[in-house]
Write a protein that binds this DNA or RNA. Structure first.
Lengths: 203, 203, 203, 203
DNA sequence: GATGAATGAGTCTTCATTCAT
DNA sequence: AATGAATGAAGACTCATTCAT
């Protein structure tokens, strides 16, 4: 075979990555063997190894791809933030839930696997840290907007609001993956209810 | 030979479990070998196997123990909830952070590992689900108290508040494990700021 | 099984080493697979690996053992050198030939394999270098004796004589392994003939 | 398409063979992969395989080429042998040493690799055997000349002298490859010293 | 009861060779 | 003729578990 085209190469990579994710998700990162992925990809061992240098590289690439997809999913919401934090969180949660309903790819499970792996893979940890840090910065930008628009008090800390919103979102991912009984609107409602306490300033 | 005493047995179990956690945490659940645990426990392979039927049982027991410890840690806060949700979340986060500073045992890392493993271990998943469900119920009880005391609006949904608070807490665990730059009081402040929006009802 | 005795351990090591040599010799160092050695040893893969950390370690140990055996074989000749260099070379060659007739272990082939491997294994190279250096020193000692006894001229260089004798011996190993038509006494005769030239000082 | 010219073909073969030797020498015969050779040759896999049927054929061809080169190197010395065996050995050793100083090609290392490989490759073994046998015959011819010229005693065995000289030469290759501290003149001196013993006939 | 040596199925990875383009 | 992507059998090594002593 003569030199393969760049598109073809990219397509093969995607093909392998998708095979990898469907395995990872079904069995976990470590219980998945390279052979599982090779079989699922429909390629030979050698071919898979010519695209990825090994299992760790495959995991890293898979997680990066996944973060990229998530990034694309959230970009519109970050570019033009909804009128209030509550609506924002609900929309993000809804996007995550929608993304998780795809066949053979549940973003929530993927996230849990990635976080766990990040504990022992420094490169993965840094990649993730960078991603969430950037996301939180965008969140802080949105908070600044909300302050200007009056959706947040004038003395609100954009930074702390961003941290809290990120927590709520990440927590939604965990809770929804494990309990499977949380809806985006539950979160929105809870957030709203928390904000209307008689002496909210005590909290 | 006289049977070993029950206390002795319990002590051995604890000894093994602690060895297991220190390994799990340092290397992850799957990268830890039984031999690592055996070495760390100071016992022989046969001895370890006489206390736990295998690696999966050890993982399950370790996670259960960990959840039990967490339960004990949170019990006081649940029995006599602080005056407001914000304070509550801050105290829980502080307890988690304190628990994570212990030598050779970081509750946050442990949680991430457990969640990931729960994806492929049904028994573990059910154990966890039960734990978080129970915790959320206690949270809803607290929310009911807060409603009565006026710390929450009269029309607040205790259930949704509980879900939201659990999300915030779980999300704190994730964010703090990965980014390591979130303080309990950041969360409390963010939650308070979120509640004081000019048109909070829009969220 | 409780702790194994030291003798038993040593016996197992020997058992594995002998299996390794019979394979190495029959198929070469690299064409021999660990599985070949494992099968030949009658042990399991795990057992073999518990005695030797890997194939390289096994090769190194095998060569070292082989050098040790050779050392033991030559020691008597070095301790009390025969009356002349010619007799010495003949006896060494005879010892090598005798050692090579053992079942499943041909010292000459072993030597060729080891030399080749030493090209790409620094540790092995150093081990060998040290061995031959020491042997050459002993040879120089013998040469000094021969000088004193008049079997060598008074102005002979013990160092160069040692180098030359070592060359003759090593070359005998090569030639005999490849051509299989050289006898120890051929070497002795050739050496004597070379020494009796009319104008030997011209060489 | 016009067939590639014969010169071109020959040039390609040489190109591949040289690439092969530079790899073989640096990493050993077995540690060198076809891919190493392909990369080093600058050709494609298919091209290399169109010139050589496989790795074994490449090794065989490489060794043959190497023996041919050696043959060419020694031919002048064999055609008109130097006045004495000592000078002859010194000149051969010097030629080998000179040949080994070439960049990326050390005849001594090459020889060790080839001998080792010959243990498990019958065709290679025969090729080598034939080469050394022929060389030894030429050596015997030279010995006959030396006898006639008085450089060797009248009762010298040309055959045994040839065997002994070959041993010295092969041994020089080994010793010099492993210890790297032997000079051609050391060998000449040692040989001369060995010949001047008071009672050389005892050796 | 305890020990730890032994087991062997299973993992990741490599690499000589082929053949569609 | 040439290319180089793809193949897949084979290799080195690991590790959860067992069981003879």
């Amino acid at each position: 075979m003569p030199k393969i085209s760049d598109e073809k190469r990219a397509a093969r990579r995607t093909q392998i990555l998708e095979a990898a994710w469907s395995c990872f998700q079904a069995q976990g990162l470590h219980a998945t063997t390279m052979d599982d992925i090779i079989k699922a990809s429909g390629l030979s061992a050698g071919a898979v190894y010519s695209y990825f240098s090994g299992k760790d590289a495959l995991i890293l690439a898979a997680v990066k791809t996944s973060l990229g997809d998530l990034q694309a999913l959230l970009e519109p919401l970050l570019r033009e933030p909804p009128p209030s934090p509550g609506v924002f969180v609900e929309r993000v949660a809804a996007a995550v839930a929608r993304f998780s309903a795809r066949d053979g790819y549940d973003l929530r499970r993927v996230a849990l696997l990635g976080w766990s792996e990040a504990q022992r893979n420094a490169q993965l940890r840094e990649t993730m840290r960078g991603f969430y840090l950037a996301f939180r910065d965008r969140l802080a930008d949105a908070a600044a907007l909300w302050k200007k628009a009056g959706a947040l008090g004038a003395d609100a800390s954009a930074r702390d609001v961003a941290k809290t919103l990120l927590s709520a979102i990440l927590g939604f991912v965990v809770q929804s993956a494990i309990m499977d009984d949380v809806e985006p609107k539950d979160l929105a409602r809870g957030l709203r209810d928390l904000g209307k306490g008689g002496n909210a300033d005590a909290g």
